[in-house]
C-alpha cells in the first residue's frame, strides 16, 4: 500500500495505530485501505481525486466538506449510487465506482 500520503507519526497525535488492511476495487482496479476508514480517505491516500462527474456539465468532483454535508464526494458503492464516501466506512471487498450523473459509466 502506498503510504506516502498517510501520516504515520504526528507531533501531537503520536504514532498512528495500525489497522487491518482490506482490499477493495475502484473502477475495476484492485486497491487496499484500512478497515473502517472513510472510503474517501482510502481513495485520497491512493491518489484518487475524482469521485464523480456531474450530470449537466460532466465536471469532475471530489472531496469538498469531508463530513457528509456537501454530497460532492458521492460514488457508486456496491452498486448503490449517491453514497457519501467521506462518511461511509471501507469494508473488505467493496466495489467502488466513479459516478456519472447518478449512474456508472455505460458503454
Amino acid at each position: 500500500m502506498d503510504e506516502s500520503r498517510r501520516i504515520l507519526e504526528h507531533p501531537i497525535l503520536g504514532v498512528t495505530e495500525e489497522k487491518r488492511i482490506v482490499h477493495f476495487q475502484y473502477d475495476g482496479k484492485d486497491m487496499t485501505g484500512y478497515e473502517g476508514e472513510p472510503i474517501a480517505s482510502a481513495l485520497r491516500a491512493a491518489g484518487v481525486m475524482v469521485h464523480r462527474h456531474t450530470k449537466k456539465r460532466d465536471e469532475p468532483r471530489g472531496i469538498f466538506c469531508a463530513i457528509g454535508r456537501c454530497t460532492d464526494c458521492v460514488m457508486i458503492v456496491d452498486g448503490k449510487p449517491n453514497i457519501r464516501t467521506c462518511i461511509t466506512p471501507l469494508k473488505e471487498g467493496m466495489q467502488i465506482q466513479t459516478q456519472y450523473g447518478v449512474t456508472a459509466k455505460t458503454n
Partner: peptide
C-alpha cells in the same frame, strides 16, 4: 434543491 439541500 439537490442532495445537499442548499447547505453551501
Amino acid at each position: 434543491m439537490g442532495l445537499c439541500q442548499g447547505q453551501t
